[in-house]
């Protein structure tokens, strides 16, 4: 167990080091950096969605809250001219505020009902953006959102540069993943999983289940809102379709294919599938079919997801060795 933990830590350190060196490795290739940024966004969204899963829920409203963050940040930029540095936090806070308010009724629902209620929330968020043309630009969305600049202490970085934005996305994504890691490894995480295991027992040993659900949901949406702001200022253009149910579903696919039981799962799933997605881009609709096949095969034949592959391989090797002896 400890050896595995050590190995996992090793892999993590290597992965983060690789991510930081990527621009140099790929020779500042703009397309690869774009894929890197997309991966960072997808990881942030999938891990924060997974945080809700640790209590036993999958929220289909997750991309909606990312949308709330994106629109907040975009509107602050286009109407007040504020930069991402401030907007990012306001966006996260606004998403969290909405999440907090909606989660109090939402968390009364369970299992199937939660899936569907969260789905309704996500759709309402999207359609509100689409309906109020005056504020949110309707289905056309909001244009001309600009990346921020840094100009202090003689340091002058413009984040319109792909490399600079890559590092910004990477750092933010790493912070989000690290924060979720800390939450899950702490007693809070143990309580979350205990609610996942048996809500009724958790309640009867004095855990305020509703409070924890609300806090977890709010926290996850805080991260989703932050990701939304980063997304908006990177793409410089947003519309309601970006944040609809499909975005939530893709995150769910990332989690399921990566694995549901540890934080490695969503990170692995989001990374691998985003890369595969990019590689298959020329295949057009066949790419979507491929994803459908992948998710069905994963559920049927690899129910623990990609994260269980090393253990499965080890077990297989051990068995083969045992047979040859």
């Amino acid at each position: 167990m400890t050896e595995n933990t050590k190995m996992a830590t090793g892999v993590w350190v290597a992965a983060v080091a690789f991510a930081f060196l990527l621009p140099v490795i790929c020779g500042y290739d703009k397309y690869i950096l774009h894929v890197g940024i997309t991966i960072a966004f997808n990881i942030a969204l999938a891990t924060s969605m997974w945080l809700i899963w640790t209590l036993g829920f999958i929220s289909f409203a997750h991309a909606g809250f990312m949308g709330i963050g994106a629109y907040t940040s975009a509107l602050l930029f286009t109407s007040l001219g504020w930069s991402l540095w401030i907007n990012m936090w306001i966006a996260a806070a606004v998403a969290a505020l909405f999440a907090f308010v909606i989660s109090i009724p939402l968390m009364r629902t369970r299992a199937v009902y939660f899936f569907m209620a969260s789905w309704a929330v996500g759709e309402v968020i999207k359609r509100v953006f689409a309906y109020y043309r005056g504020i949110f630009g309707g289905w056309d969305g909001i244009f001309n959102i600009r990346p921020p600049k840094i100009d202090i202490f003689g340091l002058d970085i413009n984040f319109t540069s792909r490399v600079a934005y890559y590092y910004l996305a990477l750092v933010c994504c790493a912070l989000i993943v690290f924060a979720i890691h800390r939450i899950i490894r702490s007693r809070t995480g143990a309580i979350y999983w205990s609610i996942h295991e048996s809500e009724i027992l958790a309640q009867h040993v004095g855990i305020n289940v509703l409070k924890h659900k609300v806090i977890a949901f709010t926290t996850a949406c805080f991260f989703a809102g932050m990701t939304g702001a980063l997304y908006a200022h990177y793409h410089t253009y947003i519309n309601p379709k970006t944040f609809d149910i499909w975005q939530s579903e893709f995150s769910l696919v990332h989690i399921i294919v990566g694995g549901l039981s540890t934080l490695n799962g969503p990170v692995l799933g989001a990374t691998v599938l985003t890369i595969v997605d990019e590689l298959l881009r020329p295949a057009g609709w066949y790419r979507v079919i491929f994803f459908g096949v992948v998710i069905i095969l994963t559920v049927l034949f690899l129910p623990g997801g990609l994260e269980t592959v090393p253990a499965r391989v080890r077990a297989l090797v051990a068995r083969l060795r045992g047979r040859s002896d």
Binding site: I256, V288, G292, V293, I296, V299
Partner: peptide, 16 residues
């Protein structure tokens, strides 16, 4: 969640 995921896969496959 698993049957939901499978039916999502079916949507991807059938609609595309």
């Amino acid at each position: 969640l698993y049957s939901l995921a499978v039916s999502m896969g079916l949507i991807f496959i059938i609609s595309s």
